[in-house]
């Protein structure tokens, strides 16, 4: 019975090819420095999962955001753990992605044939920062409110287009319910979608070219 199901699936998916292309690949000797990328991927998945749970109780409006976060911390079973992981995961993800980028730079892994992987990686770095920036406002506390105020203000100092950027980010001249709503939307839909797409391309390129080896004196 199980064997028949396996065979039926194998006929349609091709486990052998999958195994050969994804898992049973040769790699150069790797070290702990090579785990930073997969660790960032793990954090992305973890942030996604904890984030989905948080949206069950979170309400993106100035009247209720603070109280709903308070309720997650005090009223929901293990809410403190889910939010704690999400909060610290965000910090750790920024650090890991940054160190991962430095590792790639110092070992010159961005060179031929991996230039495109680097470009996608920069996109991943910026979207990760974007996730941090938009997520920071959501608890609607003093720290969040004023951090976003200065953050958008800095973006607003650009010549000519500054005012437009400022208004587009805030949804008006001041931080308001609109700002919270669009940051929420960006945080849970727009940026994660972009992030997931970029991760897909990044992974495809890594599997295609394999991990780069650490440079030796010949390189």
């Amino acid at each position: 019975m199980w064997k028949n199901i396996y065979l039926w699936l194998d006929e349609r998916i091709g486990f052998n090819d999958l195994n050969k292309n994804l898992l049973d690949r040769p790699e150069p000797k790797t070290t702990w420095w090579n785990t930073l990328g997969s660790a960032s991927l793990f954090l992305f998945v973890l942030q996604g999962l904890t984030g989905i749970f948080l949206t069950v109780y979170y309400t993106p409006s100035p009247d209720h955001a603070y109280d709903s976060v308070q309720y997650i911390m005090e009223g929901v079973a293990f809410g403190w753990l889910i939010r704690g992981i999400h909060h610290w995961g965000a910090t750790l993800m920024v650090i890991l992605v940054f160190i991962h980028m430095l590792r790639v730079f110092y070992t010159a892994s961005f060179k031929y044939p991996r230039e495109l992987t680097w470009l996608i990686g920069i996109g991943l770095f910026l979207t990760t920062l974007g996730m941090g920036f938009t997520g920071y406002l959501l608890p609607w506390n003093q720290k969040a409110f004023w951090a976003t105020t200065v953050g958008t203000q800095i973006a607003g100092t650009a010549p000519y287009i500054g005012e437009f950027i400022l208004k587009a980010l805030r949804g008006g001249p001041d931080l308001s319910a609109l700002t919270l709503q669009r940051f929420f939307s960006a945080h849970i839909w727009m940026i994660p979608a972009a992030l997931a797409g970029l991760i897909g391309v990044h992974l495809f390129l890594i599997i295609k070219h394999g991990e780069s080896h650490f440079p030796t004196k010949d390189d």
Binding site: L22, L23, D24, R25, P26, E27, P28, K29, T30, W32, N34, T35, L36, S38, A39, F42, E211, H213
Partner: peptide, 16 residues
């Protein structure tokens, strides 16, 4: 070098 499975991924999983 090594094999992605089980060598490389083992270290990745420990890190995660």
């Amino acid at each position: 070098g090594e094999r992605f499975w089980p060598d490389t991924i083992f270290r990745d999983l420990i890190m995660s």
